[in-house]
Design a protein around this nucleic acid. Structure first.
Length: 576
DNA sequence: GCCGTTTTCGGCCCGACTGTTTTCAGTCG
């Protein structure tokens, strides 16, 4: 069983125990163990085999036994017993805003509710309002929450979150009473998908600011409105939490509301170990003496740490680095000098070669790699050999006109066919400056076949890099079943690079895959998969993934300038 | 259930907001 599945089961066990009414700290321990497990890069079977998994924080002998059973046999005796005891359908109720374990327990005991369908019936009948501790408002909220879950789903793409948050942030920043304003939460950490939006402001007049923001036209409904916290629903179902603090508190609140939760807990524990208390309002010694900090960096400094960039705040190894003064100098958007996976109107892109080149120059780039679809991708206007020649001629002409200031590279997004062979013969492939190899068909092959298929592609001497290596579409489609680590090992062995496909719909490689690729010394290319001029800017999201994975400029292909880049993309060593 | 630089027992992050109470429990982040 895969690590992620095991972590999910541990989370479910913790939640089922909560609903059962177990000691909350015992329940918490299951969630802690799940979080800890998710921090492991790659396969855990070796860590299970030699027992070293118990060295992870939060995993003791008892949890280890359960993980070991799950990892080796795929089932867990205690989990199965627990599911017989507590209806697993109750777990779905946790996703309803305002519903926690205690209320679910009460609903089960008083009305025999065992899942979403029961709850809906009871709420519609008006039976919820009669239970002690519940009332008419809670019942209405439950119905509203059920409806929301039904139509909205729970998470949104980072690009959606930015689009929704930016006008609110702008309004907050421009408000005359606001001193500082920032996005916080998972959007600031640049997580792959976003649950809700968090915005923090500092002001001496919190009520006035929150009242004004609550009145904005983007706000569809108000969920909570206090003196320092406003929680609203925006269009498209997104929830936005806005908090107001004083300017002295701002850095502490910024740190706190950026999270992650695991990172915050580790920060607080660290403060406690130093005889300090860290909260969203300040850093205070036991005798009440505050340690003022003007920004987040000063908070980290006060705790004996190097500044941790928001993207790395997941309690997945950043504290060891920050403590040792070895935080990576993370790659930044401005480090990119060009990019490699871009479509034009030769296949399914919206813009011409010349327009794309001009757009790249407008962004200060020195080169742009064109990679239209190959001939098998008929649905996307894949290029026949004849059309390839036409495109190459046009690129030659454009390059001649650019002189030394800019260069278009002749590439292709070449389909990896079902058997792992390429969509053009070698005599065509060799004529490209570089080749991005991607899967666009036969998604249903089993794990072994899909893995072998990608490895064969990596072994092709003309394949420069793999494109969107898992094929996933965020919130829409899981990737195909593939042993990504085996593929990354094959890339390391053959000198094949891998792209972070930076489209906000893909982010593929993901953070864990990128971290593993770096661990294996596989060069990463941050590619927008742009189908238009605007799509070029999606490299922003790819840089986010790279930063979350701890990548420095030296780990990324397209930080190299036009002088070196051709050698890098053509240098693939002969395969073994 | 996990954990230990005063601990192998007794803690485990903590404050805001809501709805239901009549002083507070539950949820959330």
């Amino acid at each position: 069983m895969r690590t992620e599945q095991i972590a999910d089961i541990l989370d479910d066990m913790g939640s089922l125990l909560e609903i059962k009414g177990e000691n909350p700290f015992k329940c918490r321990a299951y969630h802690n163990a799940a979080d800890s497990l998710r921090g492991v890069v790659g396969d855990i079977s070796a860590l299970v085999a030699d027992g070293s998994l118990t060295e992870l924080p939060g995993i003791g002998a008892s949890t280890f036994a359960k993980i070991a059973q799950l990892a080796t046999s795929g089932h867990c005796t205690e989990f199965e017993a627990l599911r017989r005891e507590v209806p697993p359908g109750l777990l779905d109720l946790l996703r309803i805003p305002g519903m926690g374990a205690k209320r679910i327990k009460l609903l089960r005991e008083s009305l025999g509710i065992s899942g979403v369908a029961d709850l809906k019936k009871a709420a519609e009948k008006g039976a919820i309002a009669g239970i002690k501790g519940f009332g008419a408002k809670t019942q209405a909220k439950i119905l509203e929450g059920l409806e929301f879950l039904d139509k909205a789903g729970t998470r949104m793409l980072q690009s959606t979150a930015l689009r929704l948050a930016e006008p609110i942030l702008a309004a907050a920043s421009e408000h005359p009473d606001v001193l500082r304003a920032s996005i916080c939460g998972s959007l600031r950490r640049r997580a792959e998908t976003i649950g809700d939006l968090d915005i923090l402001v500092s002001t001496d007049h919190p009520r006035r600011v929150l009242d004004d923001l609550a009145d904005r036209s983007e706000v569809v409904s108000i969920l909570a409105h206090g003196d320092t916290k406003l929680s609203v629903r925006l269009s498209e179902g997104a929830q936005c939490d806005i908090r107001a603090v004083t300017d002295e508190q701002f850095p502490f609140a910024l740190s706190y509301f950026t999270g992650s939760k695991a990172h915050n807990i580790a920060m607080r524990k660290r403060a406690i170990a130093l005889g300090l208390k860290l909260s969203e309002y300040g850093l205070v010694a036991d005798d009440g003496t505050p340690t003022p900090c003007r920004d987040e960096a000063e908070i980290y400094k006060a705790l004996g740490l190097e500044f941790v960039p928001p993207e790395m705040r997941e309690d997945s190894g950043e504290f060891a680095l920050a403590e040792a003064g070895k935080m990576p100098e993370l790659i930044e958007l401005k480090d990119l000098r060009g990019t490699f996976h871009c479509h034009t109107d030769y296949s399914d892109g919206a813009n011409t070669l010349e327009q794309m080149a001009q757009a790249a120059m407008d962004r200060g780039w020195e080169y742009l790699g064109i990679a239209d679809h190959s001939r098998s991708a008929a649905y996307a206007g894949g290029l026949s050999v004849e059309k390839l020649h036409k495109q190459w001629d046009e690129i030659d002409k454009l390059n001649a006109s650019f002189g030394s200031k800019f260069r278009l590279f002749k590439g292709i997004e070449c389909d990896i066919l079902a058997d792992g062979s390429m969509d053009y013969p070698d005599e065509i492939l060799r004529r490209f400056d570089y080749v991005v190899a991607s899967i666009h068909s036969s998604f249903g092959q089993d794990r072994a076949a899909q893995t072998a298929r990608l490895i064969r592609a990596a072994e092709n001497p003309y394949v420069t890099m793999l494109g969107h290596p898992t094929g996933r579409l965020l919130l829409a489609r899981p990737g195909y079943d593939v042993d990504l680590e085996a593929v990354i090992h094959a890339c390391a062995r053959t000198g094949t690079m891998i792209e972070i496909n930076a489209s906000p719909y893909r982010l593929d490689l993901d953070t864990d895959g990128t971290r593993f690729a770096r661990h294996c010394d596989v060069m990463i290319s941050i590619n927008p998969d742009a189908h238009s001029i605007a799509g070029l800017d999606d490299v922003y999201y790819g840089v986010g993934v790279a930063r979350r994975a701890g990548l420095e400029p030296k780990d990324v292909l397209n930080v190299s300038g036009s002088k070196d880049i051709l050698n890098l993309i053509k240098r693939k060593p002969p395969t073994l």
